[in-house]
Amino acid sequence: MTKWAVLSPPTLFLLAFFLAPALIMVLASFQYPGEFGGLAPLTDPGDGKEFGLTLENHAFFFSDWLFAEIFARSFAVAAASTLICLLLAYPVAWLIAQSPRRHRDLLVLLVILPFASNFLIRVYAWMILLGPQAALARTLNGVLAALGLEPVSLLFSPCAVLVGMVYVHLPFMILPLYTNLEKHDPVLLDAAQDLGANAWRRFWGVTWPLSLPGVFSGSALVFIPVLGMFAIPDLLGGTRDMLIGNLIKDQFLGVRDWPFGAALSIMLTLAVLSLAGAAAWLSKPKARAA
């Protein structure tokens, strides 16, 4: 009884605000777009216009490689951002976990400090930092000019998008890694050392396998939001940096094609879910072995 009492508010919340909208979205993806935006009616309005259900939107997606290409590119950007975040976050999380207990809270606080200011403002700050008038671009282009090379633009480039993505999502990688690393029993490392393992072996044989759950949850927390992000490519990207998030946003706020936007969203959700399923399946035996 108590279990139900505790569980029902979140369950109801999820049903009302996740499941129901998701189902509406599925339905919308099979409807015709309305002439003036929105959706065409499901029943015959009697004015000779289209109504009911159609596969047209999904067919439109598969009618051209274009859309699949945007999916592929978005997954590549998400994968790259996740990998960079992991490489940067792991040492940070490890150092925080190794530092004296009394400093840890402060260090964790520093990691989440950027959240105190609005995300868009932080991205705008990057626009200034990467801009051609900033010290960074000037120094770099000064060096390039000295070597007789063409100047490069840092802002409005795929590189800038990656920098923005990594910067914004880094704390989401550090925190789960830290929570995991902090719990490791140092005795295990001592035992490994006693058995003759060098530092390298100790890391790959003990620390890394034990930290895999943290790696996976951190990766999911970075990968999935990056996949749907549209603000960063909009602000920092150049002329070729459209990602799936931008495409979906355009359907709703740019071209009044809700059904196609819904179809794209559903496909994105399916892609993420199957990926998460695959990751869970992959991580299970390893976690058990560890």
Binding site: P33, D64, L66, M242, N246, Q251, V255, D257
Partner: peptide, 21 residues
């Protein structure tokens, strides 16, 4: 002028192509 939904979709595909290439 406003576009009808067919033209909107044709233009949409062209635009996506512009953004991607």
């Amino acid at each position: 002028r406003d576009l009808d939904r067919r033209s909107r979709r044709v233009l949409n595909r062209i635009w996506t192509e512009i953004k991607l290439r």
